[in-house]
Write a protein that binds this DNA or RNA. Structure first.
Lengths: 251, 251
DNA sequence: TGAATAGTGTCTTTTAGACAATATGAA
DNA sequence: TTCATATTGTCTAAAAGACACTATTCA
């Protein structure tokens, strides 16, 4: 097809962010409250328009920084930085009633942040357990109640992001992105338990995780911040792919 | 942000297709020759603009059908239909010198087609081994020669699609999407060998693949089209996730 | 008969998973 | 001391990988 600007329909392109962390043994997502229609007053994922001369990943990192103060790398975070990767793109013609918007969703995995409500406005930004917005694991039990639907198609985007995180910590070292720079084997185990929603055997987990080459590097220090016997401190090793992988029970 | 159409920059949105098949023991991709600048005369991935009222997956399926006559489902193909899934979105501001174009790439896995050059124009559409365009596996040997670069950023898109296919046939039953409706264990093994570029032990492969629940269903028939002793014919079972997974040697 | 492919069986090594037992610090 | 968590060790079952051997067709 020849180059003719009138020959293609115009779109708005946005980035939406699924920002996940583990707080008090629960997988939580960052949500913002909408101040105007449509979906006024409803919770939504943070996001915004991609600028005219901005790359998609840069736009996602900018929005993340504006919303949380976090910095993120697109390929594997390190010190106090979060992991950022593209998730998927959502472009149903009806997904935004105002106009045709294609949203490139990104997934961010971040350690638990010191401030309960990061950013400026405590009314309109919060961490919430993902079960607040999406049905838990395999249909869910009676006690969870109905999820509060997010604005637009953000419920589906969040569900896709959570599923990506759940499957990706199986075969990559990404679970360490939820941990502070130095962490114990037990803290890492609690990350897996929170993300997968299962209990893991601490003894087999310890043997497996310390035996996987490149996953963990001991720092020499130890801590008793979890109580009990002092635990060795580790930081993330250089490996990105785990071999053998961690296996989610009962698949 | 308030609704103000002038407040967001306009983008063109396209779909590009990584269409893969296995032909003569080689993983091949569909390529089209560009008839006009930029990159005139260079090979590129098939694709085109998303229409004003069209979903992304529908646009990909439409382009695929226009190019090859194939029909595709977005979630698991069956009879003579191909597998289609979203791959990733590419939006570097400089990726198209004419204007700002965001491309939502899709991955298609199709069985070997009867016509060598599907579609109408044999000059401008062809199947080519993926090594024609991208460096093979781990850096590649001496004998492969330099790959012929595709137009735009299509080399990277193709590489991402090939890697997705290589990893996805490990833990899903997607390898059957490369096979005709009825196929033998040996034919399925040759698919794995072509996609991964390795040789697999036929005996262990047979035991493993027939022992994985839901992967293969015997049709009762048999064939000698590969020579040798007649082989049982199978069709794809209902399982989409393989447990245990097929493991790529030497990772 | 020989070449080619299909299919079964057997053995060894590795890994997963269950769980006993010990180690170490805090309340 | 008791409790909580960390860490090591042992056992069993499952799976991966190597490879001998048999089966069936066609040229």
């Amino acid at each position: 097809m020849p180059y003719d600007p009138s020959a293609y329909p115009p779109f708005a392109v946005t980035v939406d962010l699924v920002v996940l962390t583990v707080r008090r043994h629960a997988l939580c997502a960052l949500a913002v409250r909408r101040g105007e229609p449509p979906y006024q007053g409803r919770w939504a994922l943070p996001g915004g328009f991609v600028k005219a001369d901005e790359d998609l990943g840069s736009a996602a990192a900018r929005e993340l920084n504006e919303e949380t103060g976090l910095r993120a790398h697109e390929s594997g975070g390190s010190t106090t930085e979060a992991h950022l990767e593209q998730l998927a793109t959502y472009g149903d013609p009806q997904r935004d009633p105002r106009m045709r918007v294609v949203s490139v969703a990104h997934l961010v995995l971040a350690p638990d942040l010191p401030s309960p409500t990061p950013g400026g406005d405590a009314h309109s930004v919060r961490w919430a357990p993902v079960d607040t917005f999406i049905a838990p694991q395999g249909g869910g039990g009676r006690d969870a109640g109905q999820p509060a639907p997010l604005a637009f198609d953000h419920g589906r985007i969040l569900a896709d992001g959570v599923e990506r995180a759940r499957s990706k910590i199986e075969y990559s070292s990404l679970a360490t992105a939820f941990c502070p720079p130095e962490f114990t084997v037990g803290e890492l185990r609690r990350v897996y338990e929170a993300v997968w929603g299962v209990a893991l055997d601490p003894r087999n987990f310890h043997r497996k995780v310390t035996g996987t080459p490149g996953f963990l590097v001991p720092t020499g220090g130890s801590t008793t911040r979890q109580g009990g016997r002092p635990a060795q401190l580790f930081r993330a090793g250089g490996a990105t792919l785990l071999n053998p992988p961690m296996l989610r029970p009962e698949v």
